[in-house]
Simulated scan of single mutants.
Amino acid sequence: MIDRFGEKIDDEPDDGDTTVTALSIADCSRCNSRGYFGTTVCDHVPDRIEINRRGMAQVRAVLAAVKRKSADG
C-alpha cells in the first residue's frame, strides 16, 4: 500500500514486530492486554506519566512568563 506521501507502507507487521509488541504489552504494568492505557495506545515507557508532568510544568512556566511579560507592557 502507498501512503499519502507516496511511500510504501506495510499492511501487516511481520512476525518479529508482532512478537516484540506482544512481549512489550505483557511486560508493561500500565496498559491492558490490548496495549491501551485508558483510551490511549500505551508506549510502554514506565515513567511516561512523570515525563508528561514535567513537560506540562515547563509549559505552564513559559506561559506564566509570557503572561507576566505582556502585563508589564
Rank of each mutant, 00 (worst) to 15 (best):
M1C: 10
M1F: 07
M1N: 06
I2H: 04
D3F: 00
D3T: 03
D3H: 04
D3W: 08
D3V: 01
D3E: 04
D3R: 02
R4N: 15
R4C: 06
R4F: 12
F5Q: 13
G6H: 09
K8M: 07
I9Y: 03
D10A: 15
D10V: 02
D10I: 03
D11M: 09
D11P: 00
D11F: 01
E12G: 00
E12C: 03
E12S: 09
E12A: 09
E12V: 09
P13W: 05
P13I: 02
D14T: 11
G16Y: 11
D17M: 10
D17C: 13
T18N: 09
T18F: 00
T19M: 14
T19Q: 15
V20E: 15
T21R: 15
T21Q: 13
T21F: 07
A22F: 03
A22R: 14
L23I: 05
L23M: 12
L23Y: 01
L23D: 12
S24F: 01
A26L: 13
D27S: 14
D27G: 06
S29E: 12
S29I: 10
S29W: 06
R30T: 02
R30M: 04
R30H: 08
R30N: 08
C31A: 01
C31Q: 02
N32P: 02
S33A: 15
S33H: 01
R34E: 15
G35F: 01
G35Q: 05
Y36T: 03
F37K: 13
F37R: 08
T39M: 08
T40D: 08
T40M: 13
T40G: 00
T40C: 05
V41S: 05
V41H: 00
V41I: 15
C42R: 01
C42F: 04
C42K: 02
C42D: 03
D43E: 09
D43T: 14
D43L: 14
D43I: 11
D43Y: 12
H44K: 09
H44D: 02
H44P: 00
V45Y: 07
V45K: 05
V45R: 11
V45P: 01
P46N: 08
P46K: 08
P46F: 05
P46E: 11
D47G: 02
R48M: 09
E50H: 08
I51M: 11
I51C: 03
I51R: 11
I51Q: 12
N52A: 12
N52Q: 11
N52V: 04
N52I: 09
R53L: 11
R53T: 11
R54N: 10
R54D: 06
G55K: 08
G55V: 03
G55E: 06
G55R: 13
G55N: 11
M56N: 09
M56I: 05
M56K: 12
M56R: 14
A57W: 05
A57F: 01
Q58G: 09
Q58T: 08
Q58V: 09
V59I: 14
V59T: 12
V59R: 11
R60V: 02
R60Y: 10
A61P: 00
A61H: 03
A61Q: 12
V62N: 07
L63Q: 15
L63D: 10
A64V: 05
A65S: 10
A65W: 06
V66Q: 13
V66T: 07
K67N: 10
K67G: 00
K67F: 04
R68H: 04
K69S: 15
S70W: 01
S70Q: 13
S70L: 14
A71Y: 04
A71S: 12
A71L: 11
A71C: 00
A71Q: 15
D72L: 13
G73A: 06
G73Q: 05
